[in-house]
Design a protein around this nucleic acid. Structure first.
Length: 930
DNA sequence: ATGCTAGGGAGCTACG
DNA sequence: CGTAGCTCCCTAG
């Protein structure tokens, strides 16, 4: 349907059910508001229930009455269904109630968490079986998998759609129940979200596209919606082979692994003397071990496409982009590559091209797909209105199907896995690209500046678009002469182009609309198209790029870039620009009761491993932690002293126009966890005062009382008055292990070492050599000469860092220990969220030998005590200051007293300038400081 | 459960 | 201390 049609008023209906909070009441005037709404809509669009169970019941009844064919939602498979079914389970809802979510009457709830529970992996088999009979359309999964090429589009679309959308933190929900207006607002947010999910589905044409894909392949629609690409190809091939009366290979399942092992044993036993066989087995074993080791990221099994070394630079005359139309499918047809035609060698080496003239099943299938697509495209020319859209989707589906065939040949778990075929195809691809380059360069005397897998870029050196096109025509004619099926075509004309690296370039592309040319900037692989760079950096980089591609003179371009950077610098100094440091992906959705340890604290999940939020936080994705642990960008380096982690209470962060910032005032008014902040201060040399400095605030306001006493000689770092040693009794010691005697030694020996290290620069000035200096460091235990050269500051820092991190992570991961003195069994890996149950004391695993119960080894109080102890031990404030000072001198020397700041943007600019003809510009001219 | 490889760039670590 | 080599993330094709 066209958007105008499904958006027509009256076509869609909606329904909302809301319940009051446990122990609460609905706000005044809410009942009247509900009646008003319903009478206005002339149906029950909004109802309320008194309990969660009643709410679930009501929802299921409404779903049953609707009996919908498709359930739509953004991340519905990873979230909504999971919550609904788990809550139904928790509320002890009868099967007659929850099974209405599907079309199959069930009496027993399947195991919901069976299978993988990785975020974004789709619904578990248990959940899928609950909704049997209905299709599940998860716009999140579809956007990510099915329409990978349109990912950017989806990203922006979502962004655009989200314009009016407000995110409500879970801890704010109770607040929304205080007045009728707020509650109605909350309800509207829910309705908007539902609407947006559906709008996204329509926008992406998910249903028509998946239906077409399913029709082409002959598999199940539900599977296509889940994104099972391999299965689609499998079914397509199954149908094709079956029609020709072939017997297809068995589907390998998890059981086959056992059979393989069994088979190997049999062959091994029978042909013990056969050396080759033994070798083969070893290879297999190695392969398997390798695969298992590299779980997350398999190393490539065979060589892929050829990427030409780019001739870097800024090209200001026309560049032609020539591109083979669907290279891999064409190769299969061109060389008749098929399971039935290619002779595969037992040793697994790359096979030869087939000589057979009779077309194989695979090429014929592809030929058929191509012909159908051509036909559909021809129909499109004469169609109009909605028909054009439908046909367009059909041709897209045909293209997608043809293109995904190759990938499945190389997919090791596919029924039609054929590595030799995949290898042969990519090998031909490489040869074709290389021979094309040779032809264009040697025979046509043109300059090829870049090429990737199936494309070449030719620098014409011409200003005239017509002449450039003529050259393209000549190249196309020459290349296409050589092949039967393969076809090269002009894919784009670049007026100006900046070529930086392999897979990284930008260009001004000339396109035509109704014969009138217009220009678009195309960005490929550069920082600004990646999601892991901060917005500021992306915006600045993009600005620089547009300037460079603007065609202005060198002087103008450099000046305008310089000015814009200076402007940003100024804005940063004035606090108008705030670096995006924290990205909070999602607020926690389970009720606080689920986390007894931190009941009264709001919870957040942090985006891990995004550049904006720092690396290695010691938590894994999805872990719930009572504090946001993050690190400042660029501050973590293994060779620098200390750790870069910083624990922050969520209240300490405030959100402003979508960006999260540290609320310094709150930080100080609440004195949130001085221990943690002190840990940062002493190890990393960062303190609230310094932080305030960075943000341009008056740092004197931010010094805590305890620091004033000692601030005379330590500047703005926080110090900690140590009372007595007894207070740290029971804490884990901080130790270093000596590389030569392996003995562990602890403070204060550690600190004499650290201090010695810090004093190094002074000694160095006296002309002492580095290696000699390191050798003066001795382990206090063995005090042997020689090996102690390895006792480097990096090593010490690493050991300290590891221990501190280790403790924090042990706390958050919930180390459990048996309370029986004689047993003391310790177990790890209990997630914090599970501790609620465990803390009641589950039985020690050593039962019945031991009657103990597992309890948390470290309580929250232990954590703070321990952290305080570490701080106490690491009282290296003075050293840190010295280290900082020497580092500052080094930096200042290098950069002439300016520190690079928009580091990211500056890097990008540097790289761009490196490759332009602006070589004479000094980078220092462009460095911005804050 | 699960299409493929190539490649840049950042953080981190082992090693000489 | 410098650096090669690893993992992780995200892109191009």
């Amino acid at each position: 349907m066209l958007a105008s049609e499904w958006k027509k008023p009256g076509l869609l209906s909606h329904f909302t059910v809301v319940r009051k909070l446990d122990g609460g009441i609905f706000p005044m005037g809410f009942t009247k508001e509900v009646t008003d709404r319903n009478s206005k809509a002339e149906s029950n669009v909004l109802v309320f229930e008194s309990s969660e169970r009643a709410l679930l019941n009501r929802l299921m009844i409404e779903l049953y009455k609707l009996d919908s064919d498709v359930l739509v939602g953004h991340n519905i498979s990873g979230f909504d269904l999971d919550i609904l079914l788990h809550r139904a389970q928790a509320c002890k809802a009868p099967s007659s109630m929850w099974s209405k979510i599907g079309r199959l009457k069930r009496s027993v709830m399947p195991k919901l968490t069976k299978g993988s529970t990785i975020f974004g992996s789709g619904a578990s088999p248990g959940i899928m079986s609950c909704i049997a009979g209905r299709l599940l359309c998860d716009t999140y999964l579809c956007a990510r998998d099915l329409l990978k090429e349109a990912w950017q589009l989806v990203h922006y679309t979502l962004h655009a759609l989200n314009k009016d959308r407000k995110e409500i933190a879970s801890q704010d929900v109770p607040r929304m129940f205080q007045t009728s207006e707020l509650l109605m607002e909350l309800i509207e947010y829910g309705e908007t979200d539902a609407w947006l999910s559906m709008e996204l589905m329509f926008h992406l044409s998910v249903l028509p596209l998946t239906r077409q894909l399913t029709n082409i392949s002959g598999n199940l629609w539900g599977k296509t919606l889940q994104g099972a690409r391999a299965q689609r190809v499998e079914y397509l091939l199954l149908h094709a082979f079956h029609a020709k009366k072939y017997i297809v290979p068995d589907k390998s399942s998890p059981h086959t692994k056992e059979t393989k092992v069994l088979k190997r044993r049999i062959t091994h036993g029978a042909e013990d003397g056969n050396r080759d066989d033994v070798d083969n087995n070893d290879v297999n074993l190695e392969e398997e071990a390798h695969n298992e080791r590299g779980k997350g990221k398999k190393s490539p099994a065979y060589a892929g496409g050829l990427v030409l070394e780019p001739k870097r630079g800024l090209y200001d005359k026309y560049v032609l982009l020539l591109d083979f139309n669907s290279l891999y499918p064409s190769i299969i047809q061109e060389y008749n590559i098929c399971f039935t035609t290619v002779e595969r060698f037992p040793d697994g080496s790359v096979p030869c091209l087939p000589s057979s003239k009779t077309a194989g099943v695979l090429p014929e299938l592809l030929k058929n797909l191509v012909q159908r697509r051509r036909m559909v495209k021809s129909w499109m020319k004469n169609a109009s209105g909605i028909k054009v859209q439908q046909l367009d989707i059909q041709q897209q589906a045909l293209k997608l199907t043809a293109n995904s065939m190759y990938g499945c040949l190389g997919f090791s778990n596919s029924r039609f896995y054929a590595k030799p075929l995949a290898e042969l195809i990519t090998q031909q691809g490489r040869e074709i690209l290389q021979s094309t380059v040779d032809l264009v360069q040697n025979n046509l005397n043109l300059e090829v500046i870049y090429g990737d897998t199936d494309s070449i870029m030719v620098y014409s050196g011409l200003d005239d678009i017509a002449k450039a096109k003529a050259i393209a025509g000549k190249v196309i004619q020459e290349v296409n002469k050589k092949y039967r099926c393969l076809e090269i075509d002009l894919d784009g004309l670049y007026k100006r182009m900046l070529l930086l690296k392999k897979k990284k370039y930008a260009a001004v592309k000339v396109q035509f609309k109704d014969g009138i040319p217009y220009e678009v900037i195309e960005r490929k692989g550069l920082d600004m198209v990646r999601r892991d760079w901060s917005l500021l950096s992306k915006e600045l980089g993009d600005f620089c790029l547009t300037q460079i591609l603007s065609g202005g003179s060198c002087e103008d371009v450099v000046e305008s870039i310089h000015n814009s950077l200076m402007k940003v610098q100024e804005e940063m100094r004035n606090g108008q620009v705030v670096l995006e440091k924290y990205i909070i992906t999602k607020t926690l959705t389970k009720p606080p009761e689920a986390y007894p340890d931190a009941k009264n604290q709001p919870h957040v999940q942090v985006a891990l491993r995004m550049k904006q939020s720092g690396y290695s936080t010691g938590c894994s994705a999805g872990d719930t932690i009572p504090y946001i642990i993050c690190c400042e960008q660029g501050s973590s380096s293994s060779n620098s002293m200390g750790i870069a982690y910083r624990a922050r209470h969520p209240d300490e962060l405030k959100k402003d126009e979508g960006r999260w910032m540290i609320d310094i005032d709150y930080y100080l008014s609440q004195q949130i966890h001085p221990v943690v902040s002190r840990l940062c201060a002493s190890i990393q040399g960062t303190s609230p005062g310094r932080l305030a400095d960075c943000l341009g605030l008056d740092s004197s306001k931010f010094q805590s009382k305890s620091s004033e006493a000692v601030s005379n000689d330590t500047g703005n770092a926080l110090l900690f008055a140590v009372d007595d040693e007894e207070r740290y009794q029971g804490c884990e010691p901080l130790t270093l292990s000596c590389p030569s005697c392996s003995g562990a030694f602890n403070c204060p020996a550690v600190f004499s070492l650290i201090r010695a290290l810090v004093e190094k620069p002074e000694k160095m000035q006296q002309g002492e050599s580095t290696s000699n200096f390191w050798r003066t460091l001795r382990c206090p235990k063995c005090s042997e000469e020689g090996d102690m050269g390895r006792m480097s500051p990096g090593m010490i820092a690493n050991q300290v860092k590891r221990q501190v991190e280790g403790f924090i992570s042990m706390y958050y991961k919930g180390l459990m220990t048996c309370d029986d003195e004689t047993c003391k069994h310790t177990t790890r890996g209990v997630n914090l969220r599970l501790i609620g149950d465990s803390e009641k004391g589950s039985v020690c695993p050593n039962y019945p030998c031991c009657n103990g119960r597992l309890v948390r080894k470290y309580t929250e109080a232990d954590l703070y005590k321990q952290l305080a102890y570490f701080c106490h031990l690491l009282d290296t404030t003075r050293c840190v200051e010295k280290m900082e000072a020497s580092a500052r001198i080094a930096v200042e020397k290098e950069l002439g007293k300016i520190r690079p700041v928009v580091g990211l943007a500056a890097n990008t600019v540097q790289r761009i300038l490196d490759r332009c003809s602006f070589g004479w510009v000094q980078m220092n001219d462009l460095i911005v400081t804050f």
